[in-house]
Design a binder for these strands. Sequence first.
DNA 1: GATACTACTATCCTTTTGGATACCGGTATC
DNA 2: GATACCGGTATCCAAAAGGATAGTAGTATC
Lengths: 124, 124
Amino acid sequence: MKQTVHTPETCTRSIAAIRDTLYVLSGKWKLPILIALSSGPSRFKDLQRSLQDITPKILSKELKDLELNEFVTRTVYATSPVSVEYALTKYSQSLNKIIGEMCDWGLQHRKRMMNNSRKEKKPL
Amino acid sequence: MKQTVHTPETCTRSIAAIRDTLYVLSGKWKLPILIALSSGPSRFKDLQRSLQDITPKILSKELKDLELNEFVTRTVYATSPVSVEYALTKYSQSLNKIIGEMCDWGLQHRKRMMNNSRKEKKPL
DNA sequence: GATACTACTATCCTTTTGGATACCGGTATC
DNA sequence: GATACCGGTATCCAAAAGGATAGTAGTATC
């Protein structure tokens, strides 16, 4: 963190940067896919099985996005019926810190909201 | 960050936590509103003016969300035509770290993608 | 009493996101 | 040669998010 969010015009840049980050991470499946791959490379059908409920169209699209952002690589092997393997890149690790913090903050926030809802509000 | 994302079943919890965090921050206007308020409390119309382009319906909805998540307070003053003031809560500061990092990561990522696009890919 | 400002809400419409279903070309299996 | 698996694509549809436009109740201004 370089400065606490403030000066009038750095704001525009900051918002754009944050929006970029949100953009590459948001959506229903990006994180689940990254986490599925975090235990090792996986093939298309295997991914589809671990993330039961994802349709091939969506999986295909998400993988393309992740590839463009250089979080995963796609490798085609010239096996009998060709096999395609998806794996995390080293660059994907640059997200670890931020993901870790989102995780901590999220847990904490959920607890907080749960407590409040007992005192009559709605969380999330 | 307590652990590097892994064990099979903590994953589900982690994903939920991350999803919560993404949820409270994502959307086109939440961050801009938080930043607009970071320079001090503001009234409805003033907010609408600083964030030119936001319609009252959306602003109203976003403010309600932010209020539910305890990032802003809504105070009604019994002035001549009543005035309503929105302000950041202390709790909203708990986001500073995470937002700071999203900002840094986003800037870095954009640079990276820009470089690559010169070598023929598309960013974001 | 017409106009204007504040803080919204209501209705309707567009865009984006996600999903269901079906299918394709290739290979391998029985 | 019928069935099945792999790695997808194509078409169509539903839900969610975002927005345009108009209107409301209340006050104050000229």
